[in-house]
């Protein structure tokens, strides 16, 4: 299996390292041609305005939309989740609009409010998952068939899945816990079969 990681800006090297630990081929994607022959795509954390501006150049944004239309899986973390959203409240970013979620950027405040919290994510098993939230967004609303995967203690939605699209407000790629990436690869493997 081959997974591309969008490498405009942000923590793409961390995602590539995690995917390689899970024994799949992982490659950076900077140009539309590099999306060809990928079985899945990760949109990493970084600055969503920066990534958003850079994917508009060289028409990469259009290619990512076509990638999703072809039914291929995409996993977005933090900035990646923002870009996947259908709608962003109060924002400088134009999202790709692929997932039926409404997202709020910098929802917890500035860097001094960035935090770590243990999350219960039933889809990943019983052991709690360490959520690292850095100037993180949150999911205000899920619509349609979107499934909620994780909430904070106060009920705030921080991870969701819609078919083959997966979004997390936090950074699994900054931990040593491979379960979230494995979950994504399982989704990718299913779509490979069908």
């Amino acid at each position: 299996m081959r997974i591309g990681v969008l490498a405009m800006q942000g923590a793409f090297a961390e995602h590539i390292a995690m995917l390689r630990q899970l024994k799949v081929e992982a490659l950076p994607v900077r140009l539309p041609s590099e999306l060809e022959n990928m079985d899945g795509l990760v949109i990493p954390g970084g600055e969503s305005t920066s990534i958003g501006r850079l994917i508009a150049v060289y028409k990469l944004a259009d290619e990512v939309k076509k990638f999703a239309e072809r039914g291929l899986p995409i996993f977005g973390t933090c900035a990646g989740m923002i870009l996947l959203a259908r709608e962003i409240s109060d924002s400088d970013v134009e999202p790709l609009g692929l997932m039926d979620i409404t997202v709020r950027r910098n929802a917890f405040g500035r860097q001094k409010d960035s935090f770590e919290a243990e999350l219960n994510i039933p889809a990943l098993g019983e052991k709690p998952f360490l959520g690292i939230f850095i100037r993180a967004p949150l999911i205000e609303k899920v619509n349609g068939k979107t499934e909620i995967l994780a909430r904070l203690g106060d009920g705030t939605i921080v991870a969701a899945r819609q078919g083959k699209l997966l979004a997390a407000a936090f950074h699994p790629e900054l931990t040593d816990d491979l379960r979230f990436h494995q979950y994504f690869l399982d989704i990718a493997a299913e779509s490979n079969k069908s």
Partner: peptide
């Protein structure tokens, strides 16, 4: 808040920028 992971993590999000 203010953990080492969160401090170094923001720098990781700036990479390539």
């Amino acid at each position: 808040t203010g953990t080492w992971k969160v401090k170094t993590g923001l720098a990781q999000m700036l990479k390539g920028g």
